[in-house]
Amino acid sequence: MSMLKIFDVSGSAVSAQSQRLNVVASNLANVDTVAGPDGQAYKARQVTFQTQLMGASGAAGVTVSNISEDQTPGRRVHDPNHPQADADGYVTYSNVNAVEEMVNMISASRSYQNNIEVMNTAKSLLQKTLQLGQS
């Protein structure tokens, strides 16, 4: 029954998208962070998707291959009274771009919904297949 593979394929996509959503959430939460756990300003993270073959011909799921950090310099604000200010009186904030993250979030949630709908359709088709020849 090749249709059962749809749950593996869409399931992997849903979990990849939820991981992406997780990363967006942590980026948005840290948009105003001055110092991360290493004492440096927080760096925005981004997931990279990769196709994962699932045995049967044509079945291709998704996996998160790695999570990379954005290396662009963070936003610098002049605030000499801030405890994290450097010698010149500048405070370095995280390099998260809130607009980019919001767009990323919408895209991730739409893809998530799409895959859930695919699974719902596959489920109802399989249920009808199970009732074949009964009624």
Partner: peptide
């Protein structure tokens, strides 16, 4: 029916990989 379910799986794979670079 068997071919239809194969095609359904193919399209599900395409939808799953809508955000995968190079797919």
């Amino acid at each position: 029916l068997s071919l239809r379910s194969d095609r359904q799986r193919l399209i599900a794979s395409n939808i799953a990989n809508a955000d995968t670079p190079g797919y």
